[in-house]
Amino acid sequence: MDGVAEKPILEGEVWKFGREGGELEPGVLDGGSLGLEVQVQVRGEWRGIGLLEVQVRGEWRGMGKQAAVGRSWNPNPNPNWAQLQSKLRTCTSCTANDSVLGKRKRKRKDSCSDSDADLPSGLNPLSHDTSLTKVLAIDCEMVGVGFQATKSALARVTLVNSWGNVLYDQYVRPLEHISDYRTRISGIRPNHMIKAKDFWAVQQTVADLIKGHILVGHALHHDLKALLLSHPKSDTRDTSEYEPLRRGSKTRALKDLAAEILRVKIQQKEHCPVEDARAAMYIYNKHKKVWEKSLKDQVRRKNKLKDKKKKKKRLDADLKI
């Protein structure tokens, strides 16, 4: 291991630990002669190591001087191994979804031939502007309360501005005892309730923030019901109710709209209210011009009908006289 200081890992070098499937990232010297810092990924978890040693199943294994001086260490001397490994990686999703004896094949949409398979995941803010904009997007996560967790209660609420920056993100302590955290979907865990705020405090804060603002969301009636709040219909923009985003009489899931319109994947595992609120906001932004124009046209038509009714009432009153 004395070769570590003689030749440090250069930027861009990849260190293989093929036997356990891990991979060492480029290391850097922190100023000391033996201050080499490296990380290794074992079973999806990054672990810091020193002097190019790896801890696997509780046992420390040195990679040897050969690896320490900058040469890749590969326990598989077959020259075709790297080529074979790259081929195996090209269709991991198909391998996972292949049918086995006695099981029905998955639908075609789950295969990597689908266009959604190559979509990036996650959404980022569009700018650094964290101001309180005229349009806000909201998303809430619920937990199960009551007998057999049949009722839903607010456990987290998030508000983002037009640029996707978080204005408010708070865990909420429900009024009733939590029967089911629904972690698989909600992402809520018992430890989140330690610093959670009381429901009434969160409700008041959200009410103050959204007052006088246009509120965007997906299936907004669920979020408002969980908050025990109402919002003027003229100031709500629900991506599940907007006609061009529906499929006939049926509403569409937010993740499907995000994949089609924003070309990103969301809600892959646990739902993130920040990501969902951003998705709703960005979908609204894409349709904002046409959406707002259609709403103005609706208001004009209603006003015309009102005017006609008023004129008719006046004429009827004049005839009676």
Rank of each mutant, 00 (worst) to 15 (best):
G3N: 12
G3P: 01
G3K: 12
V4Q: 04
V4A: 09
A5Y: 04
E6K: 06
K7Q: 11
L10Y: 06
E11R: 13
G12D: 09
G12R: 14
V14G: 06
K16S: 15
R19G: 04
V28Y: 11
G31H: 10
G32Q: 01
E37I: 08
V38K: 14
Q39R: 09
V42S: 03
G48V: 07
G50E: 15
L52D: 15
R57G: 03
G58F: 01
G64N: 13
A68M: 07
P75T: 14
P77G: 13
N78I: 09
N80L: 14
Q85H: 15
Q85M: 15
L88T: 13
R89T: 15
T90S: 09
S93Q: 13
A96F: 13
N97H: 11
N97Q: 07
L101V: 12
R104N: 10
K107H: 12
K107T: 08
S111P: 04
S111A: 12
C112K: 11
S113Q: 12
D114S: 12
D116W: 14
S127T: 06
L132H: 00
L132G: 03
K134S: 04
A137Y: 06
I138M: 09
I138G: 00
I138V: 13
F147N: 02
T150M: 08
S152P: 01
A153Q: 09
T158A: 05
V160K: 05
S162T: 02
Y168Q: 00
Y168P: 03
D169S: 13
V172M: 04
R173D: 05
P174M: 08
E176C: 04
H177N: 07
H177K: 13
I178G: 05
I178C: 07
T183S: 05
I185G: 02
S186C: 06
H192M: 04
H192T: 00
I194E: 09
A196K: 01
K197A: 07
D198F: 01
D198P: 02
A201T: 14
Q203A: 02
Q203H: 08
D208M: 10
L209T: 02
K211H: 10
H213V: 04
V216I: 08
G217R: 02
A219Y: 02
L220G: 01
H222I: 07
K225N: 13
K225D: 06
A226M: 06
L228S: 15
S230G: 03
D238M: 05
Y242F: 06
L254Q: 06
E260P: 07
Q267R: 12
Q267G: 11
E270L: 00
C272I: 05
V274C: 00
E275N: 04
D276A: 09
R278L: 02
A280F: 07
Y282E: 05
Y284N: 11
N285I: 10
K289S: 15
K289L: 15
K289C: 14
L295I: 09
K296P: 03
Q298N: 06
N303H: 07
L305A: 09
L305T: 03
K310V: 01
K310T: 07
D316C: 02
A317G: 00
D318R: 09
I321G: 14
